[in-house]
């Protein structure tokens, strides 16, 4: 076990907090402590988000400069970020000071810039997903891939329903696939993931994995 002791405080904190929170899952009497800690975690996560955004800004500020071919993009990113932030703060002030609710300007930006972009990004994946599914057999021609490929086709066909061309039989097959074998496999996957999750967590609670700068 690679136990280093040069960050004993952080390690002790991580272990201590972890054990209390974990115990809170199983021992009802300390549930309150667990929630207090969880709330602390929420606030800290929020602060961390600010740190992350400062980090994001810093990174792009660093990219500014004539020698970086992408500095233009970074500049745009910074402008977009700061502009939205300023508008949002104005909104916030209005909301708190003057009771004008619902962050209209921010929402406008969100609705007309972020939302279309996000939806478009997902829409474009339709093409990528079709391509990926079509080329799976070239990548890996094995039982797994063949099954995978035909199950995709079956489930898609089972979802298809335009009255004259509806295939009720396929609907039933699709339903059955989703309900039975897919569930079996998913349970196995989830149980396996749970096992992996538990060991990963326990390693941190043991202090052997210390990603927190320990």
């Amino acid at each position: 076990m690679n136990i280093k002791l040069n960050a004993p405080v952080s390690t002790a904190i991580a272990i201590g907090v972890g054990i209390i929170v974990l115990a809170g899952y199983f021992i009802p009497s300390i549930t309150n402590i667990r929630f207090a800690l969880l709330r602390t975690g929420l606030v800290l996560a929020a602060v961390a988000l600010l740190v992350g955004i400062i980090n994001l800004l810093t990174v792009h500020f660093k990219k500014l400069g004539p020698d970086n071919e992408n500095s233009g993009y970074s500049l745009i990113l910074i402008i977009a970020l700061l502009l939205t932030l300023v508008i949002g703060i104005i909104d916030m002030v209005q909301s708190y000071m003057f009771g004008q609710s619902n962050f209209q300007m921010t929402n406008w930006i969100f609705t007309n810039i972020q939302l279309p972009i996000e939806t478009s990004l997902l829409a474009v994946t339709a093409v990528s997903l079709t391509y990926a599914a079509a080329s799976i057999l070239r990548k890996r021609m094995d039982l797994f891939s063949i099954t995978f490929f035909f199950v995709i086709l079956l489930v898609l066909l089972g979802s298809f329903s335009i009255p004259p061309a509806t295939l009720p039989f396929l609907h039933i097959i699709r339903d059955w696939i989703v309900r039975v074998p897919a569930l079996g496999g998913a349970r196995g996957l989830l149980l396996g993931i749970a096992l992996g999750t538990i060991t990963t967590g326990i390693r941190i609670l043991m202090g052997t994995d210390r990603p927190y700068g320990g």
Partner: peptide, 29 residues
């Protein structure tokens, strides 16, 4: 800030273990 992050990691690890046991392991079994 390491120790603050340690709090988060501790919570995260515990939430992961606790969540996996009570949220996945038992219900799925």
């Amino acid at each position: 800030g390491n120790w603050s992050v340690a709090i988060l990691v501790g919570i995260g690890a515990a939430a992961a273990v606790g969540g996996a046991i009570t949220g996945t392991l038992f219900p799925q079994i």
